[in-house]
Each structure stands twice: as C-alpha cells, then as structure tokens.
Computed example of a mutant assay.
Amino acid sequence: MHIPRAVTAASAAAAAPRFAMYYDQWHTASPTKDQTAGITHVITAFASTTLFTSDPPGTYTPFTDVATLRSQFADGTKVCMAIGGWGDTAGFSVGQKDDASRKLYAKNVASTLDSLGYDCVDVDWEYPGGNGDDYKTNPNSGKTDEIANYALLLQEIKSAIGDKELSIAVPGLERDMIAFTSEQVPKINAAVDVVNVMSYDLMNRRDNQTNHHTSVKGSLNTVDKYISLGMDAAKMNLGFAFYAKWFKTQGECTQPIGCPVVALEDANGGDTGQSSAVTFKEGPTVLSSGKADTDEGGQWFWDSSTSYFWTWDTPDFIAQKFEQIVKARGLGGVMAWSLGEDSSDWTYVKALQTGLATL
C-alpha cells in the first residue's frame, strides 16, 4: 500500500523525542539557533499561581515576550508558560477547592495562554498534598483534599485549553509523591500530555546525610516508581539539572553516601544557609576536582576547606541515563532546568543533544 509522504512525515514527527528546556527569569540567556538545536519546548518560569484565582484574572507579564523567545529557537518549537514553582502553591490550593474554583482557574489559564500567544502550559505544582516549602507552618494534614482534587484541576485545565499541550512537573522523591497514589496516577496520566520528572534534588535540605542529588540509580528509581503507579512512560521526560548542589557536613566525608550533615533547615522548615546550589554558568572550581561514583552513577567531591559535600551530573553520566533510563524505559524525552544555568560553552545542552541523537 502506498503511504503518502505527508503521512509518513507526520508520523516521524510525532515519534520524535521531546527536548523541553526551562527558561527562567533569574538566569536569562541569548543562545543562537545552532546552540538550541533540537529543543522542542521552551518553558518560561514562572507565572504566579494566584493570578488565575480571580475573575477577571490577574495580568501576567512574562520577563521575555513570546515572539522574542521564538526567534532564539527553531521554527516549530513550542513556547510554554510554567505556573508555580517550588514555593508558590497558594493559588493552586485555592483553585483546586471545588468544581466552580477549578473551572474558573482553568478558564483563566486558557485565556492567558491565548492572549500572550503561548502554545502550552506547564503546571509546576510540585507538591500537591503537602511537603512544599511551608510544610512545617502549613502542615500536610490540612491539604488532604488536594490529593484527589489535583487530577480534577488538571482535567479542567486540559478541557479549557483544548489542543494546546498540558504538562506537569512532578517530584523526584517518593516521600513527596503524596498526591501520586496508585488510585490517582492513572487519572493524572489521563489528564495530561507530558510529565516533566524532576529527577534531581534527590538530596535536599530535609536530609540528614549525604547522597547524590541526581544520580543514574536515583533517577531510575524515580522513573520506575511512576511507571509502577500507572504513569505512561511515553509521556515522561527525564529531568536534568544544570547546576551542582552543596551541603555542609558535620566532619570529614570520604564517601558520597551517608556522611552526616549539619542542620540544613530550622524548626519552621526555613533554610539555615548550610546548603545551596551553584549553576554550571558560575563554574565553581571544585567541579574540576570531582570523583565519579560508578556504582550509583553520580559525581561528587568533599571540600576539606569548607566541609562542603558537592553533588552534580556529568556528560558521561548523562549518556548513561539515556541508555539505562530513557531508552531502557521507553521514555518520551528529556527536560532540563534551566537553559541559562548551563556553562558558557553549553556543555550540558550539547550532552543532551548527543544523547537525543542516539534515540
């Protein structure tokens, strides 16, 4: 049977792996189209969650306009608006409450996308059901309604935006997957087009001993957990971090796993300043002194002058993630946070482009 060329081309395009790149307001960049080759989605971060709870909605003014952003990427690259982010959950909590609030929130998201010319929306409600940055002052026990209502809100948003793409950013640690139960994940999966898996920050300030923040094994465990709960692997993008993290240890640290750290957050859950992240753009010199943990698949270094334990990814481990996770689990693509945090020679964008070329 003869298949028209247009049909085969469309099928090939549909099967092409996704390459989503967050572009945040704190780390702007001016790449050329050659440097951004292969990126299929660029996601601006962030619109405030509270903009969409009122009638009429608040006004979102992106830090860069959509037309300007389009000019830095290949024709056909989708430009998406991310809502929320790590500490911003207040509007989501209001929007999810009941049928009327969900419909209003979704209508406002849709109208904002249309008015600004966005192709898609990324719901970056990272911790529905609790464990956000206010988890000690606003406990999870008061957020149990979010567990079931999260999927309902996503359904309303998808219904309101129609053919435009709906993606979500989801937590990497099982302890944070409060709304991602075996009952809820199939509903979440059915409501969305793409799932951006934050397979990084797997060590954070709630931990009391060292661990890799984005190892091969840790990332694979995260992906396997979502698949076991009913998430469609083809909808998932594996997440990559364009930054290193450091945590202050209590003493000498001679291995990457299990060194005691000082108190990284206070009694209210606040940051004690004993841990942080450093972008690859900043290029800390310790990153040239790292050690490869080939068992776990992560790079690390303990700096005796500061007692800082450093953890980050390398192009070699990125290549392993493509083989052992993206290919092995049949994922639909990759994403990274964030474009402006890459090194000046675009080492990590290039590593992802190399990996995608093998798919």
Rank of each mutant, 00 (worst) to 15 (best):
I83D: 05
V66A: 11
W86E: 11
C80A: 15
Q72E: 11
D75V: 14
K78F: 06
D75A: 15
I39Y: 00
M81D: 06
G87Q: 06
V42H: 00
S71E: 15
I43K: 02
W86K: 06
G76W: 10
T53N: 11
T44D: 09
A45D: 09
A47N: 01
W86Q: 09
P56H: 02
S71Y: 06
L51N: 09
G58K: 00
D75I: 06
I39S: 04
T77W: 05
P57Y: 04
A74P: 07
F73D: 10
L69R: 05
I43A: 07
A45H: 04
T77I: 05
W86P: 04
G87A: 14
C80P: 04
F52G: 05
S48G: 14
Q35R: 00
D55E: 13
F63H: 13
G76P: 10
I83L: 10
Y60N: 06
H41N: 12
C80M: 12
Q35N: 01
Q72V: 03
T50P: 01
G84I: 02
F63W: 14
D88E: 05
T40D: 08
D75P: 08
I43Y: 08
I39D: 08
F63D: 13
G85P: 11
G84F: 00
T50G: 08
A67M: 09
I43N: 09
F46T: 14
W86D: 04
D75Y: 04
G58A: 08
